[in-house]
Design a protein around this nucleic acid. Structure first.
Length: 488
RNA sequence: GGUACCUUGGCCGAGUGGCUAGGCACCGGUCUGCAAAACCGAUUACGGCGGUUCGAAUCCGCCAGGUACCUCCA
């Protein structure tokens, strides 16, 4: 496989050339959502980031198995209701079955992802469907001597593990520091050390989601599902593990420890982390209560939003920043992205109508190589987009008849635009679906052709009447050199 | 308190030693019956101080401000 893809590996804190473990196949695992609430902008970031990687790896010719989990069990809350499963709590409040809540939010998540043009992963395993695998995994860690049973719960012995291995190598912290600085937490009395973490948690009597295990009726610890499901579907060693930066510690650190303890190996070759979305410089998150759900973006129904924003605008907004940078949300920034995207997509549509000339007057070759270089440099989508805008200017000049292009160069330009806009960045025109009806399109064309006639007769009253009334109905009319363009 | 990261023009956001990123906004112009679009041009930058260097937004030090993780989190 000939390519030059470099990706940033959190483990080494360097960009490394991507070389898969198995020739032409790539295994990729990304932490998916916890389904006890609607997806928000923060959920869109990893989904889109790793969608880009998924698409690009396939473009390079790899056969990719992309696993993105659904977390639907066992996340502990650390407030007054300590020890209660988040999903179980919500279920009781709403008088619903836990799995009903899960299904509801999974459906909504899928709908939002589809709207964002995020390709579905190859496998989307639920934690609740892999309890046996998790119990087996706990047993392996106990057998290896790195976990202990305490009153029905099983904890990972971090200090013992750290004597042989390096707990903290991903997030860059050391166990001694943490022992001194970790705060007191509920349930800590069962643990030998504050840094130890749960592999299996005994369920309290009122806890609804519970399963039988050798140690107690309970539920798996919250880092275990990724170890169990990642290795089940991708093998004990696989290429890429992704997720948000906030999962680096403790989640991914614990996962590394679990795999090393239970399987005797480092399972993941490349760890990748997307950065956070901020709002007024502060992280957008459930716990802070400052998040905006994806549905709220699409409907504009939120105090911070001045208008609705289409899924494609949201996608484009996210792609205009590099995935390892924070990106600061504001309605003004979204509006800027919306206009930029609209200009790009209109230019892309215009490109399809360009006719070739005998020769090319402005250089357009080299675009493909430049864009590929940017992708290869740790998926630098903002740079790809900047090159597309550079070429867009040339497209518009040609469309205006100010420059010319040969048929071979035109074919190349069309190919590259399609490749990057549609296939790799996954952008599509928002309003295409709205005007799918041929008869409807022809009716609008008919009206505008009548306007064209009126214009040729210098009948400005009729011509303006048609334009103004169509505009009032929500159409956008643009005159061109010898015709018109319209959109809704 | 510990650890890590960040500070770029009106706004968003690339860029790691020399070469105009890009988008949005704004201003001037071309085109147009008018408008929109498109195109051309102009303007506005690298938190502060010091150091290294022929040369620093980019490397080093100090200071200021901010954020994240250490607790569920994308």
């Amino acid at each position: 496989m000939e390519h030059n893809l470099y990706i940033y590996n959190t483990l080494s804190r360097k960009k490394e050339q991507f070389i898969p473990l198995h020739n032409n196949r790539v295994g990729m695992y990304v932490c998916g959502p916890t389904v006890y609430g609607d997806g928000h902008l923060g959920h869109a970031r990893p989904a889109i980031t790793f969608d880009i990687l998924f698409r690009y790896l396939m473009h390079l010719g790899y056969k990719v198995r992309y696993v993105r989990n659904i977390t639907d069990v066992g996340h502990l809350e650390n407030d007054a209701d300590s020890g209660e499963d988040k999903i179980a709590k919500k279920a009781r409040l709403e008088q619903l079955e836990p799995m009903e809540v899960v299904q509801y939010y999974v459906n909504r998540y899928h709908k939002a992802m589809e709207a964002l043009n995020v390709l579905p992963p190859s496998i989307e395993p639920h934690a609740s469907g892999h309890i046996m695998e998790q119990i087996d995994f706990v047993q392996k860690i106990i057998d290896a001597g790195f976990a202990y049973d305490s009153e029905g719960s099983v904890y990972f012995d971090v200090e013992k593990y750290n004597q042989k291995h390096n707990y903290g190598k991903l997030s860059g912290r050391n166990v001694e520091d943490m022992l001194e600085t970790t705060r007191d937490l509920d349930g800590q009395s069962e643990k030998r050390r504050s840094v130890d973490f749960a592999l299996w948690k005994k369920a309290s009597p009122e806890h609804i989601m519970r399963w039988k295990a050798p140690w107690s009726d309970g539920f798996p610890g919250w880092h275990l599902e990724c170890s169990a499901m990642g290795t089940k579907y991708l093998g004990e060693e696989f290429d890429i593990h992704g997720g948000g930066m906030d999962l680096m510690f403790p989640h991914h650190e614990c996962e590394i420890a679990q795999n090393q303890a239970g399987l005797g190996k480092d399972s993941v070759k490349y760890w990748m982390h997307n950065n956070m979305i901020t709002i007024a410089g502060q992280k957008m998150g459930k716990s802070l209560g400052n998040f905006i759900t994806l549905d709220e973006f699409f409907t504009g129904n939120h105090a911070l939003l001045t208008q609705p924003f289409s899924p494609m605008t949201v996608r484009f907004f996210i792609l205009q920043a590099h995935y390892r940078s924070t990106v600061d949300f504001s309605s003004a920034a979204l509006e800027a992205s919306e206009k930029g995207l609209s200009r790009l997509m209109e230019g892309y549509a215009r490109l399809q109508k360009i006719t070739a000339s005998a020769s090319t007057s402005l250089e357009t070759v080299g675009l493909r190589a430049k864009c590929l270089d940017a992708m290869n440099d740790d998926l630098n989508t903002p740079i790809v987009i900047s090159y597309l805008f550079d070429s867009l200017r040339i497209v518009n000049l040609i469309a205006d008849g100010k420059e010319t292009i040969s048929s071979t160069d035109l074919e190349e330009l069309k190919f590259v635009f399609k490749l990057f806009i549609e296939e790799l960045l996954g952008l599509k025109s928002d309003n295409e679906a709205n005007v799918s009806n041929e008869a409807y399109k022809k009716a609008v064309d008919l009206l505008l052709n009548m306007r064209l006639e009126a214009k040729q007769n210098k009948d400005w009253a009729t011509s303006d009447k048609i334009r103004n009334e169509l505009t009032a109905l929500g159409f956008e009319i643009k005159d061109t050199k010898d015709g018109f363009e319209w959109r809704i």
